[in-house]
Amino acid sequence: MPAYLKLQKQRYYCKDCGRSFTAKSPVVAAHCFISNAVKQKIMDLATRVQPETMMAKDTNVSTHTVRRVIRQTASQIRVRPTHQLPVHISLDEFKSVKSVDAAMSFIWSDAATHKVIDVVEDRKKRSLSTYFSRYPLEIRR
């Protein structure tokens, strides 16, 4: 059942330092109009196979909002590799989606923190050697 929460921003003035600030709420993130609960619901629905339009209908937001929330969360979860490699890595292969040319993809993560570092679309040796060759030889060793 849709519920609308009318939030008004309250600004405060500090007489000691002469600065003003806005009141914060745990319901809504700063500079945002969509509640954290709705964002969590979108991410919960994103774990199931369904179109963005259905997720938008279920949460009473636009499809663009659904897409933006999924991209924001994905960028926070997935750490892009930089110039360093972790000391210990975990790796696995999995059945990929139909939009990928290869049948199986390759996923690897930091074994210490369990954070996914990246997903490679193909698990074949040629693709993996091309992928990892962008790191300098001394780092790969």
Score class of each variant (00 low, 15 high):
A46K: 00
A46M: 00
A46Q: 01
A46P: 03
T47S: 14
R48E: 09
R48L: 13
V49F: 00
V49C: 01
Q50E: 07
Q50I: 08
P51G: 11
P51Q: 13
E52P: 04
T53W: 12
M54L: 14
A56K: 01
K57M: 11
K57P: 07
D58G: 11
D58H: 12
T59V: 13
N60T: 11
V61S: 14
V61G: 13
T63E: 05
T63S: 08
H64S: 09
H64D: 11
T65E: 14
R67I: 00
R67F: 01
R68N: 08
I70A: 06
R71H: 13
Q72I: 06
T73E: 12
T73D: 09
A74L: 11
A74G: 13
S75H: 12
S75T: 12
S75W: 10
S75M: 11
Q76T: 06
Q76C: 08
I77K: 02
I77P: 00
R78M: 12
T82N: 10
T82S: 09
H83V: 13
H83P: 07
Q84R: 14
P86K: 10
V87T: 15
V87P: 13
H88R: 07
H88A: 05
I89P: 05
S90Y: 03
S90D: 08
L91F: 15
D92E: 02
D92Y: 02
E93M: 09
E93I: 02
E93S: 11
K95I: 09
V97L: 07
K98H: 04
V100A: 15
V100R: 10
A103L: 05
A103T: 05
A103I: 03
M104D: 03
M104Q: 07
M104H: 06
M104A: 05
S105L: 03
F106A: 04
F106H: 05
I107F: 10
I107P: 06
I107A: 15
W108T: 01
W108Q: 05
W108M: 03
S109Y: 03
S109W: 02
D110A: 14
D110E: 15
A112G: 07
T113M: 04
T113A: 04
T113F: 03
H114E: 09
H114M: 09
H114N: 15
K115C: 10
V116A: 01
D118C: 15
V120D: 03
D122N: 06
R123A: 01
R123F: 04
K125N: 02
R126V: 15
R126A: 15
S127K: 07
L128F: 01
L128P: 01
L128T: 02
S129M: 06
S129H: 07
S129L: 09
T130Y: 13
T130R: 15
Y131E: 10
F132S: 06
F132K: 08
